Amino acid sequence: MAILRPAIMTLLLLTIVTGGLYPLATTLLGQWWFPAQAGGSLITRDGEVRGSALIGQPFHQARYFQGRPSAGSSDPMASGGSNLAPGNPELDKQFAERIAALRAANPESSRQVPVELLTASGSGLDGQLSPAAVAWQIPRVARERGLKAEQLSRLVAANTETPLPGFPGLPVVNILKLNLALDALRSK
């Protein structure tokens, strides 16, 4: 038993430190230094939570910009991809259906449908698109809302987030923030 005592004490000590103290310290520091992010990056308007800036929201009405397709219907509890291989006939069928639906809803846009609007994200929860994929939808949203395309282009540019200088990444547009700004624009 004397031989096992140091091993058991080490196990208990490391369990307390790594299973209790460290998670507690990182949680408290995260909430202190980054309260919005630690709270889920929630977006509120008029005192009401509209969603998280980190999780994609489904927008099915033609008057809104739409995000990437989701294998889990943008349900955080059903996160994940479809796991269909690139050569799977079901995936080809899904692409054909998405292309037909996007072209029917966006007849004024170019024939080249951005790949982001066809492929589901790996997590199924992406809330951002490239500015090019958002710009492809501008004619439809302008028609549905009775707005000028130039006005929407400026709104997209104002809601484009770029990485900090010196850091890798591409510009993205948060679809939830953009649609909330679109609703605010219309109410003015």
Rank of each mutant, 00 (worst) to 15 (best):
A100I: 10
T15N: 13
P6K: 12
L91V: 08
L180R: 05
L118D: 02
G56C: 04
D92P: 06
M9D: 15
V134W: 01
A36R: 09
L125C: 05
G122A: 14
L54V: 10
L28A: 14
L28S: 12
L84N: 10
G20D: 10
G166R: 05
N174A: 05
L28R: 08
A184T: 02
F65E: 00
Q66R: 09
L12D: 00
A181Y: 09
R145F: 00
N174K: 06
I55K: 01
R154I: 06
W32D: 08
R140G: 00
A53R: 13
T160A: 03
D92Q: 11
E161R: 07
I99M: 13
L129G: 02
D46W: 11
G47I: 10
D92N: 12
Q128Y: 07
Q31H: 15
D46N: 14
S109D: 00
W33N: 11
S130T: 15
T26Y: 04
S153M: 14
G166A: 09
R143L: 13
M9A: 15
D92T: 14
I43D: 01
N159A: 02
G81W: 05
E97M: 06
N174R: 07
A7Y: 14
V172I: 11
T160M: 04
N88A: 12
P89N: 05
L24S: 14
I175W: 03
V134S: 00
R5P: 11
E48V: 15
P139M: 06
M9T: 15
G56R: 01
E144T: 07
R111A: 05
S79C: 13
P6N: 10
R145M: 01
L84T: 10
V134L: 07
G19S: 14
V113I: 15
R140M: 08
T15C: 14
G169I: 06
E116L: 07
T10W: 08
L29Q: 08
G80Q: 00
G47S: 08
Q128T: 12
